[in-house]
Design a binder for these strands. Structure first.
Lengths: 256, 256
DNA sequence: GACAGACATTGACGCAGGTCAAACCTGCTT
DNA sequence: AAGCAGGTTTGACCTGCGTCAATGTCTGTC
């Protein structure tokens, strides 16, 4: 790669692009990679132009070519049942990786769509894989990220399977709060980038139930909500409501 | 590894041990590994003596050292909430891998316990990892297996989040059926190795509901159930009940 | 500034499935 | 063979949440 130096300069001039410079680097592929390796990883990553709200990053059945890391904005992933119903499977904030479920069969089992203007890094998988052959640190890191994803999914299963509506919504809000905190945003005040319908669909609740719960939580002084903007007033109590461990310690973007 | 040949002979004499000879080999780490590589993988695997019903393979918080592949019998994995309630997260049949969720934090987030007399292969993770550095085929295989796990978990989330009690139980039975079929057992006739309570807990239903559904399914001619033994009489219709894609095509142990 | 369309809130009503309680196996232990 | 324990079935009752329906509110478009 003889021309890398120049490429780097160019890309740095465009926007804040290099993985090293990216404020998310320790989130999307944290620890265990030194600067030199990071440069090599950086070299294979493609920055694409932003998606507009509603654009698809990929659709169900699309050939799997790359993993994606959200740089800014947010995505939802969803399945579509035979009767055309959408089933939201997850929301993805900056620093989170999308597409790990597509490795197994070389094809995306879910679709991903932007909830707002969103930019992503594209990480071509074959290149990532051969690079990780040369960098044991990177290989280990990929396994950790995938393992964490499995862990998070287990958390969600637990929440979805066993919890009441109020526990689910509380857990959802705490999860968002933790994830925002982790990337340096306020954990107590943020905008929901998804509709009530999306939230309900994701949590296995009717959208009316979600709406009612928001007003109930507000009446009880747990939070203040206006349209898409939420302020958590009593995070502590909300945590207890969610009957889940609430402060993010070891685990990263845990759904809890 | 100069002494491998002898070791091999010894272990073959003990029981049917080598990965190559194991009838499950293409299930627990399918395709993409040739015979020679398989031998090297085989060399790092530890066959442990069987667990008795109720024994723990590992507990919550145990240091992560190895992945486990079920050889015979079955396991359940579960979490315990602060109030001491058990939450069943999954059941594991022969050929299935357990412990992938422990890589991320070097510690097991769930406990695993034998539902019956069960034997497992222990695969020390550090050795697996360094071996996979030398064998790109193996590395790819591990990523596929983890990706499949993520996919399966997504399926379960969908089932748990959105489906009615009857759909859940139907989906559960079809999933078991598919998984038994895949390993050469009858897909229409098998024993449940877990209690009604475990099933209900796993599916997010009261055990009474599970029991009622079994008798209802039986009355409707869908199946015959006596205690732990089930015979699926109308798999077709049961599939439709489960509102999920029913025949296992691409995906392996899909929960659907 | 008025209108359309997407999103959100609120109320009324009904049912799926949870909870409580009792009876019934089936296999062990003594 | 009697008694016990863990598991299973069945019934009666009640409630959390889904469904249907009406009304309200914000955004963008002409």
């Amino acid at each position: 790669m003889p021309t890398r130096k120049q490429e780097k300069v160019v890309s740095l001039n465009e926007i804040k692009v290099a993985c090293q410079a990216c404020s998310l680097n320790e989130i999307c592929l944290p620890v265990g990679i030194d600067d030199e390796d990071m440069e090599r990883l950086d070299a294979i990553i493609d920055r694409k132009r932003p998606l507009a709200r509603g654009d698809h990053l990929f659709r169900v059945g699309d050939r799997f070519r790359a993993l994606y890391a959200v740089r800014s904005g947010s995505l939802k992933t969803y399945a579509t049942s035979e009767d055309g119903q959408e089933q939201v499977m997850g929301f993805h904030l900056p620093g989170e990786l999308v597409g790990l479920d597509a490795i197994a069969n070389d094809s995306h089992p879910l679709a991903a769509r932007a909830l707002e203007t969103t930019s992503v890094c594209e990480i071509p998988f074959d290149q990532l894989e051969s690079l990780s052959n040369q960098l044991p640190g990177l290989q280990h890191q990929i396994l950790r990220v995938m393992s964490q994803e499995i862990r998070d999914d287990e958390q969600s299963m637990l929440t979805l399977g066993q919890r009441s509506a109020e526990e689910r919504l509380a857990a959802f809000l705490i999860s968002l709060s933790n994830r925002y905190r982790r990337r340096g945003f306020s954990p107590t005040q943020f905008n929901l980038t998804m509709s009530r319908g999306d939230i309900g669909n994701y949590l296995g609740l009717a959208l009316e139930t979600v709406s009612r719960l928001f007003t109930r939580f507000q009446n009880e002084g747990l939070l203040k909500v206006e349209r898409r903007h939420v302020e958590l007033l009593d995070r502590e109590r909300l945590c207890r409501f969610s009957s889940a461990n609430c402060y993010p310690d070891a685990s990263s973007r845990a759904e809890s």
